[in-house]
């Protein structure tokens, strides 16, 4: 037995949403009054070229049917970013140890703290 979906409460908490509606109204007004005649004249890709293959070729930096700039460096950076995000999520999800967490900086408690501090909070 599942519980019914939560009803959206139509009360005072929805009041800030008016800002979003106002933004939509403004953007709609601006977009609909724009002149895009020059844009529509020449659009679209060549009929026989494979768009997806070209995207893949651009990502790894080789030539393809639809020439475009190379995104190799961006690919590598995104790979690193995704990896970092994964590690970050793992680190956040770990429980913080209750006892023993050595502070990285102890505020100068004394000479004996140097011997124990070592590499701080990298456990």
């Amino acid at each position: 037995m599942t519980s019914r979906p939560e009803r959206v409460p139509f009360d005072r908490r929805l009041l800030p949403g008016i800002a979003a509606i106002a933004l939509f109204a403004l953007m709609a007004a601006v977009f609909l009054s724009a002149d895009t005649a020059t844009l529509v004249e020449s659009w679209g890709f060549p009929q026989d070229a494979s768009v997806v293959a070209s995207i893949g070729a651009a990502l790894i930096g080789i030539e393809s049917a639809i020439p475009t700039e190379s995104f190799v460096v961006a690919l590598l950076i995104i790979a690193i970013a995704l990896d970092a995000a994964l590690d970050g999520a793992l680190m956040l999800a770990k429980r913080d140890e209750e006892s023993g967490g050595e502070p990285v900086a102890d505020g100068g408690r004394g000479p004996h703290s140097d011997a124990e501090t070592g590499t701080g909070g990298d456990r």
Partner: peptide
């Protein structure tokens, strides 16, 4: 699509 340039789609990826 309108500029016939694949950069936009790659960027979206």
């Amino acid at each position: 699509l309108y500029y016939s340039n694949l950069t936009g789609q790659v960027f979206a990826l």
